[in-house]
């Protein structure tokens, strides 16, 4: 947002392109796309969201100032549109995350790696969610079952891992694109003989690939989901 188009005249096109692609709105768009396409919850973008919220506030003030000082309504509505789009991105980003928490709350709560990806507010929300749903499940079903079968997490006391709670499907397929040349990606699907072969990715080319194979690369920001 608020990338001043005036700057473009003083910069060569390439620099301008890189500048545009690293504005916070572009970064948010990337985070939003990744979050939307990834089956599991990703790291919360604390700093980015903080910056975006400040910018939206600023933008909101600017629009108000423009309206009251009688600047051309068309200009104002263009700014308003920009503001609306950023607002949508922010809301949608937060919403997708909340919906993932709603869906996989027990799994997220019991997996440290996932739990640490949540923002402070999300943790609060997730804690309340799990308590509420647990109480509901207890009241309706679990408390009426025999002792050894009352766990929310496990089917019975002899289950070794948490086999009762829904988990995201990590072997689903996603469309993705790499920014740089990547090599040595281990495919985790397909016939067993093929798995030893390493897969490489050209920059800018779209691939349709099993999420599990590129999970680490998405988390480190080398690959974008589309």
């Amino acid at each position: 947002m608020a990338s001043n188009p005036m700057d473009s005249s003083t910069l060569p096109t390439d620099d301008y392109e890189t500048l545009i692609s690293t504005t916070d709105v572009e970064l948010l768009k990337r985070a939003w796309r990744n979050e939307k396409a990834a089956p599991e919850i990703l790291q919360f973008e604390t700093d980015l969201i903080q910056r975006i919220r400040e910018q939206i506030l600023l933008m909101d003030e600017t629009v108000e100032e423009f309206t009251s000082s009688g600047i051309d309504p068309l200009t104002v509505s263009l700014y308003q549109m920009d503001l609306d789009r950023s607002q949508f991105l922010l809301r949608s980003y937060l919403r997708i995350r909340i919906q993932k928490i709603e869906k996989y709350m027990f799994h997220i709560e019991s997996t440290d790696e996932l739990w640490n990806r949540l923002s402070r507010e999300e943790k609060n929300f997730a804690r309340r969610c799990t308590d509420d749903l647990k109480r509901h499940l207890d009241e309706t079903v679990l408390s009426k079952l025999p002792d050894n079968y009352q766990s929310v997490q496990k089917q019975s006391v002899i289950s070794e891992d948490d086999d009762m709670v829904p988990k995201p499907q990590l072997d689903t397929f996603v469309v993705c694109r790499s920014k740089e040349y990547l090599t040595g990606i281990q495919l985790e699907d397909g016939p067993v003989d093929d798995r030893s072969k390493l897969f490489e990715m050209e920059p800018g080319v779209l691939y349709f690939i099993c999420y599990k194979s590129i999970k680490a690369l998405v988390e480190s920001g080398k690959i974008d989901l589309v």
Partner: peptide, 19 residues
């Protein structure tokens, strides 16, 4: 659950049900 959601949104000072 809806009050949990509501308190999350009021903590953020952002209404997620629009847009």
């Amino acid at each position: 659950h809806s009050s949990a959601l509501k308190s999350y949104m009021s903590r953020l000072e952002l209404d997620l049900t629009v847009d």
